[in-house]
């Protein structure tokens, strides 16, 4: 069942089968994770990179194959972390919650602008999330890869992008109306689905300790993406100074 997915050099591979995923470091390439009797062949650890940093390996997030349906999946194992984040020197606490992501997956199961999947407990009660793999690149890459001047972008590309992004804003409103935060709104957390062309939010396990404005940080994230889209990338102070020097116009 699984050997056809492995490299030929591993044809005599002995499969390790995991029903307990507590130690996610032990779940490696070529292993099988059994969830509710359904086997998933583990391929690679997922990576995430941003702000010019090398892609960081997320050992608790695995690329996998559902061996029954033969469809690609992302499997997120349970990983808790808490840390302090800052915006402009303002500290706030962030944390991961598998339970939150599981809840949102149920909530958005029929919503076209979200990643889909389901959650299931392994034999030790770890809440594992099995996500449908979305073929397509992040919105951030889509914009960064455009090879044109800003004016052309603004007139030719931006209206279409904005239309799609408005759907994403509406999708966040859907979450908020149900009392949920996205929690980690970033330009690379929208994937452009190659099949449908839709923009789809991913990654809901992050959360932040809100204060009086429960959705304040989500809204900040949306504004941040909007600025990025309008500017066709990050608009830095140096860029504005250079613009002023060249044109004499105060941006």
């Amino acid at each position: 069942m699984a050997s056809r997915w492995l490299h030929i050099s591993r044809s005599s591979h002995h499969f390790r089968i995991h029903t307990d995923t507590t130690d996610f470091f032990r779940v490696e390439y070529g292993d099988v994770v059994l969830l509710g009797g359904r086997p998933y062949l583990i391929r690679h650890n997922a990576k995430e990179g941003r702000f010019g940093l090398d892609d960081e390996v997320k050992f608790w997030v695995k690329r996998a194959i559902d061996l029954k349906s033969e469809s690609p999946k992302i499997i997120k194992l349970v990983f808790y972390e808490k840390f302090m984040a800052h915006i402009g020197g303002i500290p706030f606490e962030c944390y991961r919650s598998p339970r939150k992501e599981a809840r949102i997956l149920d909530l958005v199961a029929d919503h076209k602008n979200f990643m889909h999947g389901y959650s299931i407990e392994d034999v030790k009660g770890n809440l594992v999330r099995v996500l449908d793999f979305i073929k397509g690149k992040p919105l951030s890459h889509h914009v960064a890869d455009m090879d044109m001047d800003h004016q052309t972008y603004l007139y030719d590309q931006f209206p279409g992008i904005l239309k799609h992004f408005m759907e994403c804003i509406d999708a966040v409103r859907f979450l908020h109306n149900h009392g949920e935060k996205h929690g980690d709104i970033r330009r690379d957390h929208i994937l452009i689905d190659r099949d449908s062309g839709r923009y789809r939010w991913i990654d809901y396990d992050f959360n932040y300790r809100h204060r009086e404005n429960i959705f304040g940080y989500d809204l900040f994230g949306l504004g941040n993406i909007l600025v990025f889209l309008v500017g066709m990338g990050d608009v830095l102070l140096d860029d504005l100074r250079e613009f002023q020097t060249l044109t004499g116009i105060l941006p």
Partner: peptide, 14 residues
């Protein structure tokens, strides 16, 4: 601060 209140909200203002 103003930015803090804008982002995270103020109990007394509300």
């Amino acid at each position: 601060s103003r930015s803090e209140e804008f982002l995270f909200g103020s109990i007394s203002s509300k």
